[in-house]
Write a protein that binds this DNA or RNA. Structure first.
Length: 565
RNA sequence: GCCCCCAUAGUUCAAUGGAUAGAAUGCAAGAUUGCGGAUCUUGUGAUAGAGGUUCGAAUCCUCUUGGGGGCACCA
């Protein structure tokens, strides 16, 4: 509808002014101001140096009558507000099916998106959970708009932190669990090994030296014993991650390891060194002087001759393109590496200019705890699972007296817990930090994942009752006056499109929360299933439309919709 | 020291330079003869400070204060 209104305005003004400067059509926050609103008169009046209200009235006059508008008003400093006729809303309701809101705007787009990215031999911590929530939701939104999306998980399997963990493993190999031990036990062992290695690296010079040597051995695969333990550790890590991805509902198309791209990256940097893009630094390291571009210097190949993360990222871009000729590459990470990515992308712009143009980095906020920054090094870390488990405990407590089978309870507990966590991550704009308060995240009051799930479940329950009473949904008999619910439902496709354009799932979260509230309010004021009511069929059809939108909307956020909870 | 990001009700978050700054939670009061009370209704309360640009600033610019992140061989 936004585009349609824009066209109507442009058409109406075609013979009147030469050119209309860029203007916007919006859904106003205050619904009393209309269903859509535009600032075109303000923009135009400024350009022509005219009175905004007079300009607005002129435009209104030029638009004239149009059956899609119930009313057009000029208000405030010169806004033009459009009130859409009820028929537009009710006609749209009739078309709602499970494909409602799916766009075609991105049909030709081939997007590769890189997220989650845990490091083997280290915990899957809450930061990875955040990256997963953001990346998965964006992937689903892109797909919903018609794009062809490939999901990539880029995992570190070499480098200093892996060496630290490996050193820890080798030091504690006598207490290593059997391969047949539960995944949780093996994961715990790996976590402890990393914390130990990391602490010793900081505090013990001898250990530090050994770890640096070990790093080289791992990279070169030159030591049989090391290789053996490395393979076991890697296998355990991946088993563990697989289990988590299943639970989270993410299916990656490509798993790429750092070791696969280090050679490629090194070659790219060496080529760039010859071309003068990179320089030799103090100890023979190959560096990129970011200062030339208002950034800072970073090392791409260290003095040991090993490629750093920077070089590997260049190799990664090329490998991804080989696997899938994308026209857009999105990388989701924590925002602590924002400046790193600026430098890396700047260097990429020189050495792989075509790919750099297609690459976009999205830095999500950090998760902070009241007591300070978490760190896997000090062991003060909340792992992804421990967070989900903690929430699951509370859900379990809440539904323990419900008449549900144990199997149903288990499924509900998991879906509600993951929904609660996902919602609290996605409800705010991507870049800002989340102050994680356990009590609030697991409180299901107000805006929360469970609130969305509950509203949907309630609607489903109503629909079940309607079926039992044999009242069929129908839009044949439509009431004279429509409510906010019909309008709210109508906006869904535009909100999804907005979320996609801005790469911001939180628009969708806010919308769904509002929609659920409007439905709950409607539910409180109307008896939906009522044989004596002529409009019952309409109300049931409306409830059905609401349920369809909620289901699709929640899916886009990675939140499961439940028949019962 | 240099660079980047941020500062909005008690709290957690919204608001392409636009209209009376929205929600949720908290607190206070109320609602179930009717389909799930994990609900609904009403009230309460905020742009860190000082300048500037603009018809119009939470938003843009400058300074101040207070937080967070980064700054050569970690990722």
């Amino acid at each position: 509808m936004k585009d349609k209104i824009k066209q109507i305005i442009e058409k109406a003004m075609a013979g009147v002014v030469k050119e209309i400067p860029a203007f916007s059509v919006e859904i106003p926050g205050d619904k009393n101001l209309g269903d859509y609103s535009t600032n075109v008169a303000l923009v135009l009046a400024k350009k022509l140096n005219k009175n905004p209200t007079e300009t607005a009235n002129l435009i209104k006059e030029k638009i004239g009558e149009n059956k899609i508008f119930k009313k057009i008003e000029v208000a405030g400093p010169g806004f033009i507000n459009f009130f859409i006729s009820d028929k537009v809303f009710t006609d749209s309701l009739k078309k709602i099916d499970e494909d409602f809101g799916k766009g075609k705007e991105s049909k030709s787009k081939k997007i590769i998106i890189d997220y989650t990215d845990p490091n083997i031999l280290k915990e899957f911590h809450i930061g990875h959970l955040m990256s997963n929530a953001v990346g998965e939701s964006l992937s689903r939104i892109f797909e919903f708009q018609g794009a062809d999306v490939k999901r990539v998980c880029y995992q570190s399997d070499v480098g200093l932190s892996v060496a630290k963990a490996m050193w820890g493993i080798l030091q504690n190999k006598s207490s290593m669990p059997e391969d047949s031990a539960p995944i949780s036990e093996k994961t715990k062992f790996l976590g402890n090994a990393y914390a130990f290695g990391s602490n010793m690296y900081e505090s013990d010079k001898n250990a530090q030296k050994e770890i640096i040597e070990l790093n080289k051995k791992i990279f070169e695969k030159s030591d049989k014993e090391v290789n053996n333990f490395y393979d076991i550790g890697k296998k355990w890590s991946l088993e563990h991650f697989d289990m988590l991805y299943k639970k989270l509902g993410t299916k990656f198309d490509y798993f790429i390891f750092e070791s696969q791209v280090s050679g490629l990256g090194k070659k790219i940097v060496e080529k760039g060194l010859k071309e003068g893009i990179f320089e030799k630094g103090d100890n023979g390291a190959v560096i990129f002087k970011g200062e030339k571009y208002g950034l800072h210097t970073r090392v791409f190949i260290n003095s040991e001759g090993l490629p750093t993360y920077e070089a590997k990222d260049l190799g990664l871009a090329e490998l991804k393109y080989k696997k899938y000729a994308y026209n857009q590459s999105i990388i989701v990470t924590g925002n602590e590496v924002n400046e790193y990515f600026k430098v890396m992308l700047c260097a990429m712009g020189k050495v792989l200019p075509k790919l750099a143009k297609k690459t976009k980095h999205i830095g999500h906020g950090m998760l902070r705890l009241p007591e300070g920054k978490m760190s896997s090094r000090t062991g003060k870390v909340i792992t992804g699972e421990s967070l989900i488990e903690k929430v699951e405990e509370l859900v379990k407590e809440k539904i323990k007296d419900r008449e549900l089978s144990e199997k149903e309870k288990k499924g509900i507990t998991e879906s509600v817990a993951i929904g609660a966590v996902r919602y609290s991550i996605l409800k705010q704009s991507i870049g800002s930090d989340i102050i994680y308060d356990f009590d609030k995240s697991i409180s299901f009051e107000g805006d929360s994942g469970p609130y969305l799930q509950y509203s949907y479940t309630r609607a489903e329950s109503v629909l079940r009752k309607a079926k039992a009473e044999k009242i069929k949904p129908s839009f044949k008999k439509i009431p004279d006056k429509i409510t906010g619910l019909e309008k709210a439902i109508y906006y869904f496709p535009e909100i999804v499109s907005e979320s996609e354009k801005k790469c911001e799932p939180h628009y969708l979260v806010l919308y769904l929360t509002e929609l659920a509230g409007i439905f709950n309010s409607y539910y409180a004021k109307n008896k939906i299933v009522d044989k004596k009511d002529d409009f019952s069929s309409y109300k049931i059809a409306l409830t059905n439309a609401f349920a369809t939108i909620m289901k699709n909307g929640m899916w886009l956020l990675g939140i499961n919709s439940l028949e019962k909870m």
